[in-house]
């Protein structure tokens, strides 16, 4: 189903995360941070709740991803445009869609590796208690979809600027807004100038609401559909953007 050339792009982009220390640094930061927030002796934590489950892990994942995922995607197109290799790539017999999709998949695979690195946490929880494995699996699926949505937003902003720092900051801001779209302060703010039905549409875009609903251990087709739409929409926007801006 995926074109052979897209797979080549995925392979090369995935490998390039490990061509510099950056990829390893990212993995280490992620694993340390996730270990810390899961076992951290603050309120609602693993030990305080005396509950052998991963609820605090999944509660903190969105906030960690908020900063780490745009860092994974920021270079994808910004670097190509800055160094001029975009011209090399897009004068090969490949389409913009194959390039964007391949790069997105590579980044997603990289985040999936990071998530897989948290597996010892799952083993610990299984050892200490008897967690509902269905909830754990769905939690991971939700985290992967959340990362996918953030990456799709991140790659869009990676196409906007040649400067990776600008791409990163814009990515974080937009991820934050969509993550928190359902929270009372943000809803309260936008309802001051938007009509009610638009506020409701905006609220339905809240990534957090859909993520939490998966974390409760129920698969809702609507949530899957939401993430698919989110990823597809931002990737489509990226393809249009890069077609437009590649030569500037």
């Amino acid at each position: 189903m995926i074109a052979e050339v897209t797979k080549s792009i995925v392979r090369r982009e995935f490998k390039s995360y490990f061509a510099s220390p950056l990829g390893y640094v990212f993995l280490i930061i992620f694993l340390f941070a996730i270990g810390y927030v899961t076992f951290e002796p603050g309120s609602g934590s693993f030990f305080l709740m005396r509950q052998a489950d991963l609820s605090s892990f999944f509660r903190y994942v969105p906030y960690l991803f908020l900063f780490l995922v745009p860092a994974v995607s920021m270079r994808l197109l910004a670097e190509e445009r800055k160094s001029g290799t975009i011209e090399l790539l897009l004068t090969m017999p490949v389409t913009e869609a194959q390039v964007v999709f391949g790069k997105f998949l590579a980044a997603w695979l990289f985040v999936a590796v990071a998530l897989a690195g948290t597996f010892p946490l799952v083993l610990t929880v299984i050892y200490l208690g008897s967690p509902d494995l269905g909830v754990v699996i769905l939690g991971y699926l939700g985290a992967a979809l959340l990362a996918g949505a953030f990456l799709a937003i991140g790659i869009f902003f990676s196409a906007i600027s040649k400067n990776q720092v600008v791409s990163f900051i814009l990515g974080v801001v937009f991820c934050y807004v969509l993550l928190m779209a359902g929270s009372p302060p943000i809803l309260g703010f936008i309802s001051t100038f938007l009509p009610k039905f638009l506020v409701e549409i905006f609220e339905s875009l809240s990534i957090m609401n859909h993520f939490e609903s998966m974390g409760r251990g129920v698969i809702v087709i609507g949530d899957l559909f939401f993430f698919a739409l989110m990823i597809g929409g931002w990737l489509y926007g990226t393809i249009l953007l890069i077609t437009e801006k590649k030569s500037n």
Partner: peptide
């Protein structure tokens, strides 16, 4: 193209192989 842009993080042989794959 002008200035011969290349992927700096790749090895020569791997880069040429990648060019072949893209083609």
């Amino acid at each position: 193209s002008e200035n011969a842009p290349l992927y700096d993080d790749m090895y020569v042989e791997d880069f040429l192989r990648y060019a072949g794959e893209l083609r």
